[in-house]
């Protein structure tokens, strides 16, 4: 799978409260409505202008803070095709995998990527293309890829349960 997308660029330590504010965590249950608040407290223009297939790029520790899954859900539902960061907070990393939102950890490339630019990601090859430069990124571990391949955790568990019965 290879994707191309327009970049929204942010800094280090983008936390889950600015990705999806805590005050909505129990009051908003609709995915579309979650998407409407994506990154609200960091960049109020994001949710209004984001296009399907866009890519979020950030520095280190993206998604730090709470365990709230809506932080991954709202980005996925807003149409974000992938998040590229220098590193990810661990629970966000898990939530994104479970949501089927691909993450790319590639610290070398972050400095070279500019907001509004189009970048290309080749998932199988582990290659990120930024202008005329290319960067390698490590693939996800095989057991985790299994979840992504099934389209997220829910279909993955359904399949496991079906296999158990069989």
């Amino acid at each position: 799978m290879t994707i191309q997308g327009k970049v929204w660029k942010y800094g280090n330590d983008v936390n889950t409260d600015v990705i999806f504010p805590g005050k909505y965590t129990y009051t908003i249950t609709d995915r579309k409505e979650m998407a409407a608040h994506a990154l609200e407290d960091l960049d109020p223009t994001f949710a209004k202008e984001v296009q399907a297939g866009d890519i979020v790029v950030a520095g280190s520790n993206f998604g730090c803070g709470s365990s709230r899954e809506q932080a991954a859900t709202c980005l996925k539902e807003a149409g974000v095709a992938a998040v590229i960061a220098a590193s990810f907070a661990r629970i966000f990393f898990r939530n994104a995998i479970n949501e089927g939102l691909p993450l790319i950890e590639c610290p070398e490339a972050i400095g070279a990527i500019e907001a509004g630019q189009t970048v290309e990601v080749d998932f199988e090859g582990g290659i990120l293309r930024v202008g005329d430069k290319t960067y390698q990124f490590p693939g996800l571990p095989e057991s985790v890829m299994g979840i992504v391949r099934e389209g997220g955790l829910i279909p993955y568990v359904r399949k496991q349960l079906a296999q158990r019965k069989a």
Partner: peptide, 28 residues
């Protein structure tokens, strides 16, 4: 919940996880 780390103070392994995976543990 992210602050599940608290319980380590009593010598347990304790880590925060997401909601869907909590549901997955309920299931499998």
């Amino acid at each position: 919940d992210s602050h599940t780390t608290t319980y380590g103070a009593l010598g347990a392994f304790a880590a925060g996880i997401g909601r869907s995976e909590t549901a997955a543990i309920m299931a499998i």
